[in-house]
Nucleic acid binder design. Structure first.
Length: 105
DNA sequence: GAGCTGACAATAG
DNA sequence: GCTATTGCCAGCT
């Protein structure tokens, strides 16, 4: 299985109401420093594979999307809709990882 | 076909 | 604790 496919499978495993970090996903596919790829995959294939891209954020718990189609505003909205508390700060959104970070199944 | 860029994270200073 | 550099692999130009 390719790196790309592994990431997709993992992301689809993220339960509703939880969030995972790019580094976490990367670690789960045995490539800790490939966090960038995770983001890149979401950027390209989020709609193709119907991925819950909103459940993937950076290690700081901050939404760092640069993608306008998948804006941080939309991401925050989707997360809150799943019961995740999203904190808005200085035009950026933060998630409380201590409460909502996904623990691999 | 070669080089650059990208939803980031870890290591070193 | 914070800033700077390196690593990752696939897609695009």
């Amino acid at each position: 299985m390719n790196f790309n496919q592994k990431v997709i499978v993992l992301i689809k495993k993220i339960p509703k109401g939880r969030v995972a970090t790019y580094g976490q996903i990367a670690s789960l596919v045995s490539t800790p420093r490939a966090a960038r790829m995770v983001g890149g995959i979401l950027h390209r294939d989020s709609e193709k594979y119907d991925l819950p891209w909103q459940r993937v954020i950076n290690s700081k718990g901050m939404i760092s999307t640069t993608c306008q189609k998948h804006s941080s505003n939309l991401q925050a909205k989707l997360l809150q809709n799943e019961g995740v508390k999203v904190i808005k700060k200085d035009n950026n959104y933060f998630i409380d990882l201590k409460k909502y970070l996904w623990r691999e199944a």
